[in-house]
Design a protein around this nucleic acid. Sequence first.
DNA 1: ACATTAAGTGATT
DNA 2: AATCACTTAATGT
Length: 216
Amino acid sequence: MDTINEEILKLLQSHFAVLNEKALQEEIAKVGYMMHFKAGEVIMDFGSYVKLVPLLIKGSIKVVRESEDRDGEIFLYFLKTGETCSMSFSCCMMDKQSDIRTTAEDDTTLIGVPVKYIDQWMMKYPSWKNFVMRSYDSRMHELIHTIDSIAFQKLDERLLGYLRQKAAATQSKIILTTHQHIADDLNASREAISRLLKNLEKTKNIKLGRNKIELL
DNA sequence: ACATTAAGTGATT
DNA sequence: AATCACTTAATGT
């Protein structure tokens, strides 16, 4: 069990440069799991217990909040390469159920670290602590951003922002999705999204196709 | 050719 | 802006 996984070691060095302590890298390489998810796969569902912290190597992960009663869900943010899910830190330290659902947006590769280590590493490795704090910080900012986009922005601005984020997460100007999916993510009706997309096409921001949106 | 699914439209609240 | 009721268009079998 305690052999160092060379593949993980390499990936850490290339994707998580901030975790620069050799001993830490080696520990992760010992206890981490390489995991792969296909596009669209649910990684962690609402209500499940979190027992792994993900370090994202490749692909991107969509994080959404589920509403308890109605079947609504709200898109929160995308996780990209080199990032981690700070929600999972708090969830697993408290041993609480997940408030969110994460799905693979693309084919995704990550290193799963069992939660029992994340706490003890905080004391042991300054770079780990730093990494955890930094991801909290950046996630807080993103959350605040999405909160006020919901509170203050009009739907069309949110839509454009969503498309941009999706393009960034996916590293491509071409987004493959349906109007219905977008509507679900933004908690809006399909018709509204269709109409707004039409406007964006007219104003030359995007180009529409079936199951396809191209950013210009 | 036919059925299914995505997208567009207009009216109503 | 949501919902409904429909139409039109694209795609798979």
